[in-house]
Design a protein around this nucleic acid. Structure first.
Length: 109
DNA sequence: GGTTTGACCCTAA
DNA sequence: ATTAGGGCCAAAC
């Protein structure tokens, strides 16, 4: 198995720890796994996820609080829809979706 | 083996 | 306020 799998496992585990109705940023996840400067790895890990994964990758967004996904099997619309079902208020901004991290941001601490 | 890219973040001008 | 550049680690070519 690739040595990066351990890191992937950490990422998935951290993402699973995100409470329902909250959203976390790549930076936070990266910080939780011990690499605050490796937010990109989180993106890679989530990108490699399967469509039927149990990991709530939908709760992970960028530091600006908006969804970056573009050409994935799951369109941003559906992601925003799921977040709404989770209880997160998603605002639309010119085709892109915006979430208020100040209210729905996951407070790790 | 090296080079490029990536669902990012931070700092500087 | 915005735009540009560097950095980080892992996977794909």
């Amino acid at each position: 198995m690739p040595r990066g799998q351990n890191l992937y496992f950490r990422i998935y585990n951290a993402v699973r720890k995100i409470p329902r109705g909250k959203v976390a940023t790549y930076g936070q996840i990266a910080a939780l796994i011990g690499s605050p400067r490796s937010a990109r790895i989180v993106g890679w890990a989530l990108r490699s996820l399967d469509p039927g994964t149990k990991v709530p990758w939908q709760r992970v967004i960028n530091g600006q609080g908006m969804i970056s996904i573009e050409n994935m099997n799951c369109p941003k619309e559906q992601q925003a829809l799921v977040l709404r079902q989770e209880g997160v208020e998603v605002m639309q901004r010119d085709g892109n979706f915006w979430v208020d991290l100040g209210k729905y941001g996951w407070q790790t601490d």
